Simulated scan of single mutants.
Amino acid sequence: MNAPSPQSTLQAAPLAGFRIAVTSDRRSQELVEALERRGALVEHTPLLKLAPLDNEEQLLSQTRQVIAQRPHLLLVTTGYGFRRWFDSAEAAGLGESLTRVLSDAQIHVRGAKALGAVRALGFTAASVGSDGLTSTLLRDLASEIRGKKVAIQWHADSDPDLIGSLHRLGARDLVEVEPYRWVDSAREESMIELVHSLIAGRLDAVTFTSAPAVHALFAVARSRGSFDALTRSLRERVTVATVGPVTAAPLQSAGVEPLIPERHRMGAMILQLIEHLGTHGTLSCQTALGACQLRGHTLYVEDQSIELGQAQAEVFRRLLDAGGAVVSRAELVSLLPSVSSNHALDMAVSRLRKSLPDPTLVSTVIKRGYRLNV
């Protein structure tokens, strides 16, 4: 049986050749498998995980307050949190009482996942946030909150100063319900290694499904004095994919513009990542050896796939982009780490040539630089 050609492999696996970091804990296996089915090489470093509160009595006390308060409005920020709240209430024998109280309240939800959870438990939502941000939901409800008894189910992803905003809008008898919290799920060494990989460009993309995970990664980078280098790499070298605007917010605050799908779903994030990397992360050129394509750090040429090191991939990417034109030594040196020199470039080119089916694919142009043999 003949081995499949690189071209047929790429058609069947649109993420073939790309190295992608997954930072989520919840539903991470689903995301990792979805990316791997599409050909990606996945590095999984879960940064945070959802965990119940250490003291379940705190949540039950909040539940009893809601039942006694009989709120006019309930704001629901997460589907997982809403479901977990009811699981806890039912286990404590408070499910029926909570259901009766909330059936009389106006329920307003932050986004589609929260809406699905509300409907699944038999409730009707009075409104759904237009962009998945709690701040937008509050703005839309500003005229309805004053003087009303309000309960809110929220968590660490919620917009900053959420409770303060509700008080300023005139909410009274405000009850906060917090069904879970975030806890570290990765060793610091793993998080530091992820920071280093992102800074060095050893990864082509990174995915985030929660804002606290972004904050956790940034905190580790700051503790190592690497925050500026990390954000610069996320702006210039590594594609950042998020599941929605709430997750994207801390990245945008740091000057990083991530991918944000129109539908705030994991599947939509994957499809957007495929489209982006297929368009912006792939370079192709017809060469003396035939069709040549670089996808991330993987080179497809002459019926072979070749994994390139970081320096070799940077050099070959620029040569491929030049399409046979000469690229100066100075420009190629500038693509390598800041401590690089002409000797480092010579070593990178030497290793690159050894990786190729035919070393003459990269030609030296005396006193000028290098070019691709097209």
Score class of each variant (00 low, 15 high):
residue 66 V to F: 10
residue 67 I to G: 11
residue 70 R to V: 14
residue 74 L to S: 02
residue 75 L to R: 00
residue 77 T to S: 09
residue 77 T to G: 00
residue 79 G to A: 05
residue 82 F to R: 01
residue 83 R to W: 02
residue 83 R to F: 05
residue 85 W to K: 04
residue 85 W to C: 10
residue 88 S to R: 15
residue 91 A to V: 02
residue 93 G to S: 10
residue 94 L to E: 14
residue 94 L to R: 12
residue 95 G to T: 11
residue 98 L to G: 09
residue 100 R to S: 13
residue 101 V to S: 15
residue 104 D to A: 11
residue 105 A to Q: 01
residue 107 I to M: 02
residue 107 I to N: 00
residue 109 V to P: 03
residue 111 G to H: 07
residue 111 G to I: 07
residue 113 K to N: 13
residue 113 K to P: 10
residue 114 A to G: 15
residue 117 A to G: 07
residue 117 A to V: 05
residue 118 V to W: 03
residue 120 A to T: 12
residue 120 A to M: 06
residue 122 G to Y: 05
residue 123 F to Y: 13
residue 126 A to P: 00
residue 127 S to T: 09
residue 128 V to A: 02
residue 128 V to G: 02
residue 129 G to C: 04
residue 130 S to I: 11
residue 131 D to E: 07
residue 132 G to P: 15
residue 132 G to C: 14
residue 134 T to S: 13
residue 135 S to A: 15
residue 138 L to A: 06
residue 143 S to Q: 12
residue 145 I to S: 02
residue 146 R to C: 12
residue 147 G to Q: 08
residue 148 K to V: 08
residue 149 K to D: 12
residue 149 K to A: 15
residue 150 V to Y: 05
residue 152 I to M: 01
residue 154 W to H: 13
residue 154 W to L: 14
residue 156 A to Y: 00
residue 157 D to I: 02
residue 161 D to Q: 14
residue 164 G to D: 15
residue 167 H to W: 13
residue 168 R to A: 14
